[in-house]
Design a protein around this nucleic acid. Sequence first.
DNA 1: AATAAACTTGACCAATTGGTCAGATTGGTT
DNA 2: AACCAATCTGACCAATTGGTCAAGTTTATT
Lengths: 212, 212
Amino acid sequence: MSLTGSEKPQRKTRIQRANEQKILEAALDVFSRNGFRGSTIDQISEAAGMSKPNLLYYFKSKQAIHETLLARLLESWLDPMKELDPEGDPLEEILNYVRRKIEMTRDFPRESRLFANEIIQGAPRIKPILEGEINALLETKAKIMTKWMDEGKIKRVDPKHLIFSIWATTQHYADFDVQVRLVLGENIDNPDQFEKTKAYLENLFTSLLKID
Amino acid sequence: MSLTGSEKPQRKTRIQRANEQKILEAALDVFSRNGFRGSTIDQISEAAGMSKPNLLYYFKSKQAIHETLLARLLESWLDPMKELDPEGDPLEEILNYVRRKIEMTRDFPRESRLFANEIIQGAPRIKPILEGEINALLETKAKIMTKWMDEGKIKRVDPKHLIFSIWATTQHYADFDVQVRLVLGENIDNPDQFEKTKAYLENLFTSLLKID
DNA sequence: AATAAACTTGACCAATTGGTCAGATTGGTT
DNA sequence: AACCAATCTGACCAATTGGTCAAGTTTATT
């Protein structure tokens, strides 16, 4: 028994690190396709290439994997918004935010769906985190936008609804991928289609905000 | 045994009609909150106020209830788009579509979430229907919009992306209800907030499409 | 009132699934 | 080589859950 008290205080082994990685990668795949209740530990352990008890050696429960995944996700999910710079050119700052958002949608569609699944079902597991972090950040950024509007740098709109519409329009391409593909034949993982989508969204938000 | 051949060819009884209604109503509630796999027959039968075997007397399986719900949903879901009139005033027609869409989001949020749940998870059960019906309708309406653009009645944008962004921005308020509420304190079921949201979206799409 | 059909349910079953455990194997350290 | 901790797994368990069944109750029809 170690003197440090906690359960697993040791530094991580090579194997431990590798296997936790494999599990989280597999779990992201499975959870984002099937939702929490629609996913089984067997599916995940199979996808991770190990036995179920072995998976449970690294994560004590299905919940634990899911929580780890969501925690990591939330961390990176808000990054694009954090970069919104009050000193930059207002319209360009917002467009850059849109661009970063749609790049994330292209590069991390599974993360987007994992998040969407969680929110649609009432965010049972991440409401507290959402409540604190997102709200604070959003409040700050909304204030910046309001200041820009006061200064006449961009047109006046409700900043929170603006942010909602940026989230909605960008994430739509990941979350409703099947539908988009059914209509367009492809989605933003295709470079050509990515450019078209980006151009459309840049135009959408420029039209809304640009002062003539 | 009846001569008409099919399983249950009879006209529906008073009780039958009432109970099927109760079941579908309860199932919509449960499925839209928990997704297909996250919902149990017990939850639904409890919500419908009857025993599980009795529920299964009216619907032969959990799947069957879900399919019935989705079929009914799809029917009404596309109605707002069908009303888009090629003879009407272009901008006003599109804005009316946006208005109908956001009214549906307000009045039928559970249906919106049921649909979103299904699509996010790859639309396993409704892909065929989606493929036929939605695609055909969307193609027709996109052509109408293109014609309006050719005639210089509205600004030129990609009509399919336009439709995506209308879907995304309106449905967002139902599907991400929890998040919206966390940020605004309320959502479009509040008349005041509904007006604000409607005004924002009207402005968004007017800015995009209006010819000065 | 009698009767048949429609309706209802407690008890039950089999499959799935989250999680445990005892024991085997492997990796690192001396 | 020897030893201990870390890693791994087959077998197992208990709870949940979709669905069945036989028997009872209610409703409609004559």
